[in-house]
Simulated assay, not measured.
Amino acid sequence: MMDALRQQLAQPAQAALAGGKRNSNKPRRSLLPWSVLLLASLAGLALAAMCVGESSVPLAKVWAWLSGTPDATLDVLLGELRLPRFACAAGAGAALALSGYLLQLLCRNPLAGPDLLGVNEAALLALLLGLGLQALLQWPLAALGAGCALLLLFALIVLPAARAGQAVPRERLVLAGIALGALLRALAELWQARQDLAHAMNLAAWSMGSLQGRDATAAWRLLGGLGALLLCLLPWRADLKLYACLPQQAATLGVRQLRLEAKILLCAALAAALALALASPLAFIALAAPALARRLHAGHSLRLCLLCGALLGAAADTLGRWLPLCLPSWLGLQGMDIPAGLICQISAGPLLLWLLLRRDAAHTK
C-alpha cells in the first residue's frame, strides 16, 4: 500500500517541480513528441553513420542492404564494422548519460559526473592492471574498479553521516571524489609509463576515446549490461521520483534514503564502467545529456536523458569520421578518424561555460 501511495505522490510532485499548477499528466504526455523526435534523429544518424567513411556508401545501397538484398561487401563493411561501431557509440553515450543523471540527482549539482567522484580513474587503473587479459575479462575489471572507488567514498562519507542521522554531505562527497580521482590518476599514469610500446599505443587510442575496431560482441555486451542496469532501476522508479522532487520529505513517505543513495552510487559506477571498458570517458556526455533532457522537458526524465546521451555519443563518433573528409588536405587528416573522445573534449569547454552562465543567471533572478 505504501508503494502505491508513493507512486501516486510522485507524479504530482514531479509536476509541481516542473511548473506549479499544471496538470500532472501534461508533462508525461509532452515526453512523447520529444521521445519520437530523438528516436527519429537517432535512426537518421544511424543511416548517415553507415554511409559516411573513407569508403562512402550511397544511401540507396544502404537501404537495399537493410531491406535484405544480399551483398557480401556490405555485410562486412556495414554489418561487421560500421553498424556495431555505431551501436557502441550510442550505447556508451547512453551509459554515461545514465551515470551523469544519477550522480547529478544524488549531488543536486548539474555539474556532477563520474569524473568528479573518481569513478573514471578507478576503472582506468583496473583496466591498466589487467592489460593482457582477454577482452571478456576487461568488463568486470572496469566495473570492479569503479565499484571499489564508490565503496570507499560510501564508507568514508555517506555511512558516517547516516549513522549520525544527518543528510549526505554532498560537498564533502564531491571533494573526496576529486581527491580520490587525482590519486588514482597518478597511479594509473605511473603504471602506464611502465608499459611497452605496443600497449602504450593501444592505451593512447583508448585514452582519446577511439571506437575504431569495436565489433558486434562489444556492442552486445554494452547494450546487455545497460539493459540489465535499467531493469534494476525499474523497481525504484517511484522512489527516485520522490527523491528527485521532494528530497526533504522522501524519508517520511517511506523512502529508505540511505539504501537508495547507495543504489544510486552503485548503478552510476557500473554505468560509467560499461562505457569505460570500450574507450576513455566521453566526458561531456555525462554533463550534456541530463542538461539537454532538462531543457527539452521540465522535470526529471530518464528516458529523454538516455536518448540524448545515445544521440550525442553516436553524433560524436560519426562526426569524427565525417570531418576528415571535409577538411582541407593541408591539415593532414585524410584517411584517419578523429576519436569521439576528442570531439567531446572540444565541445566540453563551451558546454561547461553555458551551464555555469545559465546557473548564474538563474541565481540572479
Rank of each mutant, 00 (worst) to 15 (best):
L98S: 04
S24H: 02
L266W: 12
Q249C: 04
G165P: 06
N120F: 10
G20A: 03
K365A: 05
C326R: 13
P70R: 13
I264S: 00
R172A: 15
A186S: 15
L175C: 11
G181T: 09
P324W: 10
L74F: 05
L304P: 08
L276A: 01
R6Y: 00
L59S: 06
A205I: 01
L311R: 02
G147W: 01
A273Q: 05
L312T: 04
L287D: 07
A112G: 11
D115N: 15
L106T: 12
D196I: 09
G147Y: 01
C88Y: 00
A90V: 12
A340K: 05
R237Q: 15
L152F: 09
S67N: 11
G79T: 04
G299I: 01
Q257Y: 04
A126F: 12
P27V: 09
T318F: 06
G181F: 11
R321T: 01
M1T: 11
A218E: 11
A193G: 13
S67T: 06
A162V: 10
A16S: 10
Q212S: 15
M2I: 02
L137C: 08
W354I: 05
L282D: 00
L59Y: 03
L351Q: 02
W330R: 01
A146I: 13
A314E: 12
S56G: 06
L274H: 00
G79V: 12
L260K: 08
S301L: 04
G19V: 05
A314N: 06
S210Q: 02
L229I: 07
L323M: 12
G100R: 03
A4G: 04
L45R: 03
W34M: 13
I343T: 09
P290D: 12
L81R: 12
A142E: 05
V76E: 02
A291C: 11
P339G: 10
Q138E: 14
L357P: 03
W322M: 14
R194S: 11
W236I: 03
A288S: 11
L327S: 09
A122D: 03
D196L: 07
A348Q: 08
G177D: 03
R185K: 10
L258F: 02
P235L: 11
H300T: 01
R82N: 10
L311A: 09
F154V: 07
L327Y: 01
A10N: 08
A149K: 01
A18C: 00
A298P: 04
L353T: 14
A298V: 00
A10T: 13
H297V: 02
S55V: 14
Q249H: 02
D75C: 09
L42N: 07
Q7H: 12
A72Y: 00
F154E: 07
L278S: 06
G79I: 10
L226D: 14
W139P: 00
G227I: 07
G91N: 06
R108A: 14
V36R: 04
L327V: 12
